[in-house]
Simulated assay, not measured.
Amino acid sequence: MTEPVLCYNFQFEVDGAYAEAFAEGLYEYCDALSHFERPGDPTAPWRIEGFSGDHLDKAGIVAAVSVMASAVGVDAPEVSFGTYEPKDWVSENLRSFKPISVGRFFVHGSHWDEELPVAKTGLQVDAGLAFGSGEHQTTKGCLAAIDWVAKKGTRSNALDMGCGSGILGMACAKAWRSTVMMADIDPASVRVARENAKINQISDLVTAIHSNGFQDARIRDAGYYDIICANILARPLRAMAHDLTNTLAQDGVVILSGLLSHQEQFVLSAYREVGLSLIKRFKVENWTTLLVG
């Protein structure tokens, strides 16, 4: 009998105020990482889970968790390790993903077979291997921001930095028929973003590339962007402030997301230093999306 293929995971719980900090220190130890709060209980600890197709460096993970706990002044949480049989996550996603309506946008999976609501712009997104089905609060905040910007006028050249499944770039392409550069550090995300652009019949407007931040010269060669979307994490957003503004058109705007509400000033201060100001904030639960320009 063939032995089942196993994948490996670890998990632990930590105060939500420190969840992102712990998560950022563990990406190098696994193939995928998630951190989330328990539904309906905002006071409960957040769960952090890591997944890998290969054996995990248990000692390294425990040590990294201990170092982070010491840095933020809390007791080191107990890390548990386990194995699981891989699932068809795409099929699981399709069964659970309900359509989402944000502003002019109506995000749905390929299983949706009903008519689009009146006056809505459809975005068909099956996340596949890439993060970003549109269900996460930060994605909702970004779509609301794009909708708000679209009501103020046209945009012609967009950048979706850290594109994931490409939902934000596609929203820009459909809102203005603008050209869109999509970039992500994860090659799987780039493949999924390209496929989603094809499904949504906007491949002619979209270029999706593999790039660590702004390192790929094609991002700069595409010209100055009059709208940039970056739904990443607080620390990377701060780190890329100079590179981002160096590619921004004179009248351009930037949508920053992936940050908890208490991280707003931490991120905003970096963009004020490079000459941008807060235009509007969009809050969805305890997550904040910032529009600056």
Rank of each mutant, 00 (worst) to 15 (best):
F131W: 06
P39T: 09
R191L: 14
F105N: 06
C7Y: 15
D147H: 08
A59L: 06
F266Y: 15
L159W: 10
M1P: 11
W287V: 06
W89T: 14
A188S: 14
G82P: 04
R220M: 06
L26T: 05
I167A: 03
I146M: 10
V125A: 10
G258I: 04
V72L: 02
F12E: 06
S257K: 02
D57F: 11
F81S: 00
N157E: 05
D221P: 02
R238I: 11
A197H: 12
P187R: 05
P99I: 04
K140E: 15
V62I: 12
G25M: 08
R218D: 09
G109C: 05
G82M: 00
D160F: 08
S156M: 13
K120C: 10
D186Y: 01
G164H: 07
H55Y: 14
T289Y: 11
H262G: 06
T121R: 07
G60C: 06
G53T: 11
A76C: 11
H35S: 14
G109L: 07
A71L: 12
Q215A: 14
W112G: 01
A59S: 08
A17K: 14
V72M: 05
E13Y: 12
F51A: 05
F51V: 04
C142F: 03
A145V: 10
G132W: 04
T2C: 13
F97S: 12
R194D: 10
V67M: 00
F22K: 01
M240D: 00
A197D: 12
Q215D: 09
A71P: 04
Q215Y: 08
L33S: 02
T289M: 07
N286Y: 13
K198W: 08
G128C: 09
C229Y: 02
C229H: 07
G166F: 06
S211A: 03
G166P: 01
I202E: 13
E115C: 13
S34G: 12
C163I: 03
R38N: 12
N93W: 15
D216W: 04
R191V: 15
N93E: 12
A23D: 05
P4F: 11
M1S: 11
D41W: 06
R95E: 15
F214Y: 13
